[in-house]
């Protein structure tokens, strides 16, 4: 099997809207797709991860482009985005919902779409699943230790965090940049990530992340017609600019390598857990 799951095409892309580029994590794909969807009646509500004081993530139903922008950027900690899925279709009365999530969240949503036991009238209202690449995540206080103890930055000063080139980066509002080697952050990863074998949100309509594309650009995996349609339209109408994905070692090569590394490493952990007699996640929706 392809380490990236099944897909139609892979490109590099970035948003053209300056407002998005100013606030987003990489190429602003997620925010651009959502804003495009909201402005063109393809979506009428999107689930994103906003943040409160201290970079604490808060899942939110956004119904305007402004709200999408406020929630742009990666929070390197668990944001239970799906917890607001029901309020999106109930008190917000959305009928065309977009959801962004880590691979595990996308998988969880796919399962709910297949078996919506506790989700009355939800299935036909979820219109777009955008997945973000994910190697691992951190509990909130784990992220704080990385920021405050390993990088020495007060959490209230942080404007952005990033992972790339083997390091965890912290940008402050005073313009400083601090970093720590990823090796040092491993102890603060949430352990449930170690049994996760999906790096690229294989069950999403569109998956995106930084790996494989130049700085400021995103790698976009278009997985099905639904994803293809919206990305093509956005390119046609100038919301996104695209370039071919670098097929080489630092492009697609790196992406595949990392996806495979995650699978192999975590499969080992799964086997190990089985030996210990501990439960492991089931295969869902494959």
């Amino acid at each position: 099997m392809d380490p990236l799951g099944s897909y139609k095409s892979i490109i590099s892309a970035r948003a053209t809207d300056k407002r998005i580029l100013k606030r987003c994590q990489d190429g602003g794909i997620v925010s651009a797709v959502f804003i495009y969807g909201l402005e063109n009646n393809i979506l009428d509500g999107v689930i994103v991860a906003d943040k409160e004081e201290g970079f604490r993530p808060v899942p939110k139903v956004a119904t305007t482009p402004e709200e999408v922008l406020e929630a742009a950027g990666t929070k390197y900690t668990v944001s239970p985005n799906l917890s607001v899925l029901k309020s999106a279709i109930r008190e917000y009365a959305c009928e065309k919902v977009g959801v962004v999530g880590t691979p595990c969240q996308i998988l969880s949503l796919r399962k709910a779409l297949k078996y919506p036991v506790g989700f009355r009238h939800m299935v036909d209202k979820v219109k777009l699943l955008v997945g973000i690449f994910c190697m691992e995540n951190f509990p909130y206080m784990g992220m704080r230790i990385i920021v405050e103890e390993l990088c020495g930055v007060r959490i209230e000063d942080v404007v952005k965090m990033d992972i790339g080139k083997g390091k965890f980066w912290v940008y402050t509002r005073w313009g400083e940049v601090k970093s720590v080697k990823l090796k040092k952050t491993h102890p603060y990863e949430q352990s449930s990530c170690h049994v996760c074998t999906d790096y690229t949100a294989e069950l999403a309509d569109i998956s995106t992340g930084s790996v494989g594309s130049p700085d400021g650009w995103s790698t976009v995996i278009i997985r099905n017609e639904r994803g293809e349609e919206i990305i093509n339209k956005m390119i046609e109408e100038g919301y996104l600019e695209r370039r071919p994905i670098d097929e080489g070692k630092f492009g697609l090569g790196l992406l595949k390598k990392l996806a495979l590394v995650k699978k192999e490493k975590n499969m080992k952990e799964i086997e190990h857990r089985k030996e210990l007699g501990l439960p492991v996640p089931p295969d869902v929706c494959h």
């Binding site: 119904t63 309020s87 008190e91 917000y92 009365a93």
Partner: peptide
Amino acid sequence: RTNISERAKAKL
């Protein structure tokens, strides 16, 4: 528990 959104009100 909660109020409803403008959109919900219109839909109703």
